[in-house]
Design a protein around this nucleic acid. Structure first.
Length: 588
RNA sequence: GCACUUGUAGCUCAGCUGGAUAGAGCGCUGCCCUCCGAAGGCAGAGGUCGAAGGUUCGAAUCCUUCCGAGUGCGCCA
């Protein structure tokens, strides 16, 4: 969208140098600090193409651009600095932005393509722990970002709904004679199942008969025994109900909930194919694919397909699931939003998919992310305070719901203090948006491969580069809109530099959205929004000292023009927050 | 040992495909509300970009080596 501003200048330079305008656009960058200009073009490469000294070319171009009146151009040595009058920028951009504020964050780059995004993927009968926020919100954000860029997106929650734990749960359930009503009546059904699991394990510790009972139920479940299957479904339903409470808080949903269990009977064909193609071998009783022996020397160890006892492993399940998803969704890209600790696993089975000549083998992407570390200032005897994986002081896992609720509580308190007029349901809704938004934004604002360092006091502070900062800027814009009639004005009346800064921040969003897709990186959007909000805040605050700088100023025509920009910025901020999975309240 | 990730201001991090004096938030100093929302803005102090080589007109960014941190490396997922 920036090209709406730069196109005439780039065309001139392209004409002058014989280089494609698209290549020149990529060279265009921001000027050095202290250089008063909007954009800068380093002339080294174009000069090489024309066999001219860079400063000479810069000077020639500056003269030509100034003569044509396309911008104010200054050659600074080998750099060409461009400054556009605010009105020119506004005239180029504002009509498109005013027509559809979300357009700044829309692209057709991915239209006609399908993306299957696998994220969140919790285990049944276990809590959604705080660390699940990473896969859940990175995945959710990527789903929205891809969709904004024109992709058709399928959101997949690959539930961990299989394994030996169910045998123990069923065994304990039967032994204690529990009922569905008791489970349904529990304050938290997952906690109920967790505690059942713990009791069942402990009881079995000194009792081989109970151990055997759990094993029998595990086998019965695998064999499709009706009662085992029924109880399994009950546990799964109960867990899903709890998960959905948290997903609702986060505003996350899925198109497919097919879990591991769904693939139990779909692995045999993949295994048979691997064997048929002579790719498998037996190593210490286990069935493996020796990737190194098939030319993939980077793999030092073979990939395990089946345990010595015949049980399947998750590489096999992932291959089967990929086949299934490719049939169902015909994906052009499949994302697996899973922590970086599993990159070896993904590299292995992606390689196996290639050995199998799967047409989709090159479309698989592991979207890895760093771990969530929580500051622990009371680590216990003889240990230093420091960053640790998400556990409370007592050593229990931090539950995602509890962290979100604490965020909401803190937000509610701040609203009560700063904006006592907000009460009741509205305050509650805003507390939710702000409290949850703070936690979520904290997780998305930096590159996903970084570890996230979480301190309650830091993440839930509402000033600085935070979700609430963005929401606040949005609320301020809404507030101004509310105070005025909905008229649109003449962009040419936008003459202030701080207005131009806002416009240029808006114009850059589309390119940043596309970069976010290619890098699978929500933080690119997050950083872009921080830049936009900073520009907006600076602009709006200028009106505090200088009444003529106010949006609603004495000149109604100017006010109308500024209001058009307010609406565009508000729309873009709201849309951007949505792409990150935050909501944008109109007041806070 | 091998692999992946990572090392930029006191702390937490940006820095687009290499481009001109490395930016922001927090913290610290000092300002700005009879207010279009101070959950904001303005200004200041604070950095041999882990180290050393190399490629280049130009390197925080690319390559090599080394050092530090985290994680993973067979029957869990």
């Amino acid at each position: 969208m920036l090209d709406l501003v730069t196109a005439p200048v780039l065309a001139l330079i392209a004409n002058h140098t014989g280089l494609p305008a698209a290549d020149l656009a990529r060279l265009l960058g921001s000027p050095a600090k202290g250089v008063a200009a909007d954009l800068a073009l380093p002339c080294f490469q174009p000069a090489k193409a024309k066999a001219l000294p860079p400063p000479k070319l810069a000077a020639e171009l500056a003269a030509a651009i100034n003569a044509a009146g396309l911008a104010q151009a200054v050659a600074a040595g080998p750099f060409l600095n461009l400054t556009f009058p605010p009105a020119q920028v506004a005239t180029a951009l504002l009509p498109a932005l005013a027509a559809d504020p979300a357009a700044a964050l829309r692209s057709r780059a991915g239209s006609g393509r399908n993306a299957a995004i696998d994220f969140s993927s919790p285990n049944i009968a276990k809590h959604l722990a705080f660390h699940h926020i990473r896969s859940t919100m990175i995945g959710n954000s990527l789903a929205r970002i891809y969709a904004a860029a024109g992709w058709k997106v399928t959101r997949i929650n690959f539930l961990g709904d299989w394994g030996t734990a169910f045998g123990r749960l069923i065994s304990g359930w039967k032994r204690e004679g529990l009922t569905l009503a008791q489970l349904e009546g529990a304050a938290d059904r997952v906690t109920f199942l967790n505690e059942l699991y713990v009791r069942s394990s402990q009881a079995a510790k000194g009792d081989p008969a109970l151990e055997e009972d759990a094993r029998r139920w595990s086998k019965a479940l695998e064999d499709g025994d009706a009662e085992a299957r029924h109880l399994w479904q009950i546990f799964k339903d109960a867990s899903l109900a709890e998960f959905k409470r948290v997903y609702a808080l986060l505003g996350v949903d899925f198109d497919s909930w097919k879990g591991e269990a769904h693939y139990e009977d779909k692995m045999a064909p993949v295994l048979a194919e691997l064997e048929g193609k002579g790719l498998t071998s037996i190593d210490q009783g286990a069935t493996v694919v020796d990737l190194a022996a098939h030319g993939l020397k980077q793999f030092k160890k073979p990939m395990l397909l089946k345990r010595a006892d015949g049980g399947t492993l998750y590489a096999t399940r992932d291959l089967a699931a990929a086949d299934d998803r490719f049939r169902e969704f015909a994906f052009d890209r499949a994302l697996y939003v899973v922590d970086l600790g599993q990159s070896l696993h993904f590299n292995e089975w992606f390689a196996a998919a290639k050995l199998l000549n799967r047409p989709y083998a090159d479309r698989l992407r592991h979207i890895g992310f760093g771990v969530l570390l929580v500051w622990n200032d009371e680590p216990g005897e003889g240990l230093e305070p420091g960053w640790a994986k998400g556990r409370t002081r007592a050593g229990k896992v931090m539950l995602l719901r509890e962290v979100l609720e604490e965020g909401i509580d803190r937000a509610r308190a701040i609203i009560a203090e700063k904006n006592p007029d907000l009460v009741g349901d509205e305050r509650e809704a805003i507390a939710r948006a702000v409290g949850v938004g703070a936690v979520v934004f904290n997780d998305l604002k930096n590159a996903r491969t970084n570890d996230v360092k979480f301190k309650f006091e830091e993440a839930l502070r509402f000033d600085g580069e935070t979700g609430p900062y963005l929401q606040y800027a949005h609320a301020r814009l809404c507030s101004i809109e509310r105070k005025s009639a909905g008229v649109s004005g003449d962009p040419a009346l936008l003459a202030r530099d701080d207005e131009k800064v806002v416009l240029l921040a808006l114009a850059r969003l589309q390119g940043q959205l596309e970069r976010a897709v290619e890098a699978d990186e929500p933080s690119i959007v997050a950083q872009a929004l921080l830049a936009l909000a900073a520009a907006v805040s600076s602009w709006l605050t200028a009106g505090n000292r200088d009444p003529s700088a106010k949006v609603i100023c004495d000149d109604p025509a100017v006010a109308a023009a500024r209001l058009t920009l307010v609406r565009a910025a508000r729309g873009a901020l709201g849309e951007g927050l949505c792409l990150l999975g935050l909501t944008a309240p109109e007041r806070m």
